Simulated scan of single mutants.
Amino acid sequence: MKHLTEIEIGGNPVLALLSKLNRTVEGIIKPVISIALLAISMILCFNVIARYILGFSIKWAEELANYTIIYITFFGAVNCLPIGMHISMDAIVDKIGSKGKTFLGKINAVIGIIFSFALSVYGYQLVLFVVKRGQVSPAMMIPMVIPYMAIPTASLFIGLEFLEKLFAKN
């Protein structure tokens, strides 16, 4: 889905606000993902050099890389949705007319909204469970709520993207 223009929003203030919120979130996520990829690449490269040349290793490097990749994956999905980079059945969709494509797009958005918001709700329940347990990561000793927060938060933003897609004029 391309970013919405004023014509596609059709003067709907709620859709305009939703679109602005989604573009703001995307604008924040993109550079953070880039910096995170660069940071874990540098840390892991240094860790390999340190292990094989200097004779020591950073104990928390692998754990940090794993948690960072989780965040990159979930929040990268938020940025992929509006530009149509999610998995789709293009071979089937290309064979139907424009009205059929619009209808399937709306069905896809509804399914995406239901799934994303359900994942967000259950993800927050998981986060609350982890908070109650007081679980910490083994190497970095950070609260495990930090890695788990990627699931509900990114799912909420994905749901908002699907919501915008549902109500956009095609």
Rank of each mutant, 00 (worst) to 15 (best):
I70M: 12
F117A: 02
L21F: 13
S34R: 10
G55Q: 11
P143Y: 09
P147D: 04
L156I: 08
G76F: 00
I96Q: 10
F162D: 03
M89S: 11
P13S: 14
I40N: 05
E164T: 13
I49V: 15
Y148V: 04
M42S: 12
M42K: 02
K169T: 10
S34G: 15
K165V: 00
V131D: 12
R23A: 09
G84R: 08
I7F: 11
P82L: 04
E164F: 01
F46A: 12
Q125T: 04
T68K: 06
S98M: 11
Y148H: 06
S57H: 12
P143S: 13
I70N: 05
H86L: 11
F167C: 09
P82A: 08
C80D: 08
S57G: 09
L38W: 05
F162K: 00
E164S: 10
S137E: 10
V145D: 01
Y122C: 10
A168W: 00
V130T: 15
K99R: 14
M140S: 11
V48G: 06
R133A: 15
F162A: 03
I113L: 12
V130K: 02
G11F: 09
K2E: 15
K132I: 06
R51L: 11
I107K: 05
G11N: 10
R51W: 03
A65M: 08
V145E: 07
G11C: 09
L18F: 02
A109D: 10
A109C: 12
S88I: 04
F115S: 06
V14L: 14
S57P: 05
T68V: 13
F115M: 10
